[in-house]
Nucleic acid binder design. Sequence first.
RNA 1: GCCGCUGUAGCUCAGUGGUAGAGCGCACCCUUGGUAAGGGUGAGGUCGCGGGUUCAAAUCCCGCCAGCGGCUCCA
Length: 692
Amino acid sequence: MVKITLPDGSVKEFQGPVTALEVAESIGSRLAKAAVGAKVDGALSDLSTRIEHDAAVAIVTEKTRDGEADPDALYLCRHSAAHVMAEAIQRIVPGAQLVYGPPLENGFYYDIAFPEDRPLREGDFEAIEAEMTAIVKEDRAFTRYEMPAGEGMAKLESEGSKYKLDNAQRAIDAGSDELSWYATGEPGTDWEDLCRGPHVPSTGRIGAIKVMSLASSYWHGDENSDRLTRVYGTAFFNKKDLDAHLHALEEAKKRDHRVLGKQLDLFHIDDEVGQGLILWTPRGSIIRKELQDWIGGELRKMGYTDVFCPHIGKLGLYKTSGHFPYYQDSQFVPVMERQFIEQVSEEGCSCGDLSNMMRAGDIDGYLLKPMNCPHHIKIYASRPRSYRDLPIRLSEFGTVYRWEQSGELNGLTRVRCFTVDDAHLFCREDQVADEVMGCLSLVKIALDTLGLTDFRVRVGLRDPDSSKYVGDPAVWDRAEQACRDAAASLGGKVTEEPGEAAFYGPKIDFVVKDVIGREWQLGTVQVDYNLPERFGLEYVGSDNKTHRPVMIHRAPFGSMERFVGVLIEHFAGAFPLWLAPEQVRVLPVSEKSNDYAQALCDKLVARGVRATVDLHNDRVQAKIKHAAGMKIPYSAIVGPRDEEAGEVNVRAFGIKDALGSMPVDDFVDAIADEIACKGSERLTERFETAGV
RNA sequence: GCCGCUGUAGCUCAGUGGUAGAGCGCACCCUUGGUAAGGGUGAGGUCGCGGGUUCAAAUCCCGCCAGCGGCUCCA
């Protein structure tokens, strides 16, 4: 007797072992037809899985009860689609060796080792999709069979795929005593793959399938290991959902900060200047400067003091800090003194020798600073400090340079020169908790004001297996605990990630996603017991003895470049009034109103508003379209009627109809007010409340 | 750095070996028009860069540079 508990709590009894499909059939034939898998005691399973003992069973169908696509069903669909794609690819490219093909949030991929003389190209996609469609049409059942570990390994051995052997070995090492295969059809005759499952019942259940892109990857993610080709695809139960997904991708592209950066003239990257080096155009500079001025004002209120430092420092500084030579690969090559180069050259030093000296750190010169902390530390250390002076909070919009790999560079979000809204706090150990909390609240204020509420907090801990970290493990433990406690006190989504720490200490990061789902680290707070040690920092305590201060690194935005990039996408380019590069555009209805329009614009500018007049010889319809294209928050339309009444007709971006008319002075006041309060009171609301 | 794709006017893109194209933008002219594109004329291009094949290359081949998607990396 097997007792099956269904999601609604009801219990069904069966004489003996039963499959999930039979359970579904016992409930209703329509459910059985719609079923693509099952959850047995919470574990996603094949519909054909035999349930031997009492269990809680939920039948997985394409859609949940409220009509939404079921994520478990999509998982099955995509995992199965990966098999179909692999079979199609192996038909087209004989000798392609399968490695690993998991489902993803929006699709799936399969890592495949292609023969050297037959790489996969995008031109193959059409043929692959045609094969896949054919396989789907054949509606072959996914058939699972199992073998004991030893027998299974022997089978793989004879087939000769080192990748599948490796997968199997890993499964065995993880405790499996048997291996499972899925044949797409009949075991022994049809295509099959070593796979843990589960799958949809048959290929026909995969409704719509598309090969998306190619990338290279490394076996086990190890760059010294085999290079594989990763083929990305996606699948849905029907074409409509696939089309909706593709459409959403197109829409996301439109709010990509690189696209909007061009369209709205916010920044420029120029080959002749260099990759990953951002040129801020006047419009983009306004956004950055507004953010800097705003956060700078908050810092002054919180007891920070500004400092300024050069962009370079002697190598010795970075040897002390630990940045050089350990992180050479991500630094620009040092700027060496002419005299030094000439001297080693005279001594017969070759380029290779010089390179080796550099690697060993056995050279002199200057480094473009990869971080601001060493300079700030030297300001702290420039005079004796008393415990009464602490905490000392030194802030600077400090520009740093990092040699990112060329394939990593990405618009504003990954660059080689960026400005950190940086500060370093030097405090007593007993002040650390308060200071960390102060930093976190600042990050919260910043993100809340901008409406960036969809972030996760990541506590970056050290990777116990890595040797890249400096400092005493006991000190690390203390700092990690301080970060955990502080992050927990925020009350939001917190994840702990070993290996994400800075080399000098653990950190708390605020991580957001961009329009295509990639995560970027923005604000960060890092507790550091190590650099004060390395630089021998001190203060005199109330006991008249010297003590070591603790340092906190923090940047609420992270990098101005990345932050603005994320903000562009967050607002889809339609910035709130206080940040908008062009806040008001005055649109005269015809040339007859140009003077009146100009006078209005002058009034706005005199109040500090970023306003312009559109004096083009266009009809007002076209001027409205152009203003909308630049996502200007407010348009002020003026014609003879307005001039006579001393009024202005107001339009707001994103609102189809005009808001209405108001006296010129009221409009100027309203705009100035909305800017001053950073949008917490909006001009549009006045019209709504007035019922216009 | 690795694999694939892409690179043509300021922008978005068409152009498969035979005289360099369109729309938008820009300039000028007509129009003086009241809420998401009035009409006309014109300027603007070493077709990413360098080699090669060819009578002839934007187009085919090789190398490089840059961008995009991933991988790896990310103090």
